[in-house]
Design a protein around this nucleic acid. Structure first.
Lengths: 196, 196
DNA sequence: CCGATTCTGGACGAGACAGTCAAGAATAGG
DNA sequence: CCTATTCTTGACTGTCTCGTCCAGAATCGG
C-alpha cells in the first residue's frame, strides 16, 4: 500500500548525526543535512519531523550507542575487571588525544549547547551519564571481588569520580591539551585507585 | 576631538557575555545584544566589530577573569595551601550544583561549540586551562612544602587530574547530576590525594 | 562660538534559513 | 492493468538576522 522508503533510516540518522556533530545544533543547516543524506527536504520532514525532533532522534541513538560501547568494554567476568577498566580509561584518553579535529563527543557538545534550554536533551544526558556510571561501578565491584581494588572502597563514589575524570579529559581535549597530558591524567587517576 | 562614548565598555561586555552565555554563540542574536545593552547596532559594530569579534572579546575577558578568580582562591602562604585547594574544589562543586539554570561555564560552553572551527577560541581555552592547571600545581607544591601532601607526588600530574575532575564536574552538572553526587565526586577526589 | 570629528540610533537591504506544498514517481493490493 | 496510497523532489514562501548606512547629536580644539 504505497511507495516504499527509498533510504535506510539508520544510515540517514548516522549521516545526520555527523552533521550536528561537526557544527553543533544551531549552526547545522537542514539543507546541508538533506544534501549530505541525499534526500529531499520533504522526505526528511516527512520521516522525522522538524529539525529539533531530528536532532533529538540522533542524540538519543548516539547516547544509546555510547552506553552499549561502554558495556562492551567493561562487561565480563570479575577476573579481568580491573584490567578492562584500566584499558577503557586509557582508550578514552587516547581517543580524545588523537581526535585531531577537536570534534569531541556529541554527548558533551549537545549537552553544553542545549541542555539548559531543552529538557529532553538534559534528560537524555542525565540518563546516559547515570548508565555509564552504573557500568563503571559494576566493573569496580567486580574488580573488588577479584581482589584488584580494596574492598572497603565505595564503588559508587569511585565510579562517579572516574566518570568525572573521563568527562574532564573530554573537555580538556576540546581545549587542545596535548595527547601526553591527557594520557597522564588518565594514568594518574588510575594510579590513585585504592589497591589492596 | 569628537563625541565621547556614551557607554561603559566593561559593562556592555558583561551584558553581552551574559547573552552568549545563556544561548550560545550561534543562537545569540545581535539585535538582542543591542537591546540588552541599550545600544544601537551602529554603536556595537563601531566599537567592537562584528559578532565574531565581539564574542572573542567577551570570551577572552571572561577567561582572564576566571584565571584571576582561581588565583585569588589558591594564592597564599604554604601553610593554608591544602585547605585553600580543598575549599576551591568544593566551591566549584557547590557552584555547579546550585546553578539551577544549568548554564554552566562559558569557557566550557564556548569551547564545546566553537573550538573545533575557531582556532582563536581553541587557543584561548588552551591558555586558560594551562594557567589554571599551573595555579593548582603551585598550590599543591605549597601544600607539599607545608607537609600536607606527600612529598614524592608529582604536583603537575596531580594538578592535571584535579583540573580534569573540575571540568568533569562542570560537564556532569550540565547533564543534571544531583548536587549531592557532584559534591561526592569532589570529596572523593580530595580523599584520594596522597596524604603524608 | 565654530568646524571637524566621533558617536548614536534605527531604518534598510541582501542573503540565509526552516518549513510547506504540489506535481510526479513508485508500490501494494485487487 | 488500475487505483489508492505513500514517498520523493525541489521550488517557493515568509521570516529572521547580520551588517551597513546615513542623518543627526554630542564633544573637543581652536
Amino acid at each position: 500500500m504505497g511507495r516504499t522508503r527509498g533510504f535506510d533510516e539508520g544510515e540517514v540518522l548516522r549521516v545526520t548525526r555527523d552533521q550536528f556533530w561537526s557544527t553543533g545544533y544551531a549552526a547545522a543547516r537542514v539543507d546541508d543535512i538533506a544534501a549530505a543524506t541525499g534526500l529531499g527536504k520533504g522526505s526528511l520532514y516527512g520521516a522525522f519531523g522538524d529539525k529539533h525532533q531530528l536532532f533529538l532522534r540522533t542524540f538519543d541513538d548516539h547516547c544509546a550507542g555510547l552506553i552499549e560501547a561502554v558495556l562492551r568494554a567493561l562487561d565480563g567476568p570479575d577476573a579481568g575487571a580491573y584490567e578492562r577498566l584500566r584499558a577503557h580509561v586509557m582508550a578514552v584518553a587516547n581517543a580524545t588525544a588523537s581526535d585531531v579535529r577537536l570534534r569531541g563527543c556529541l554527548l558533551a557538545k549537545g549537552t553544553a549547547e542545549l541542555s539548559e534550554r531543552d529538557p529532553a536533551v538534559a534528560a537524555t544526558a542525565r540518563r546516559t551519564f547515570a548508565a555509564i556510571e552504573e557500568l563503571i561501578s559494576s566493573c569496580i565491584a567486580g574488580a573488588q571481588r577479584a581482589g584488584d581494588i580494596r574492598q572497603d572502597a565505595d564503588p559508587t563514589r569511585l565510579a562517579g569520580l572516574l566518570l568525572a575524570v573521563l568527562r574532564g579529559i573530554e573537555a580538556l581535549g576540546k581545549g587542545g591539551s596535548s595527547p601526553d597530558s591527557l594520557r597522564a591524567i588518565a594514568e594518574t587517576a588510575l594510579a590513585l585507585l585504592p589497591l589492596p
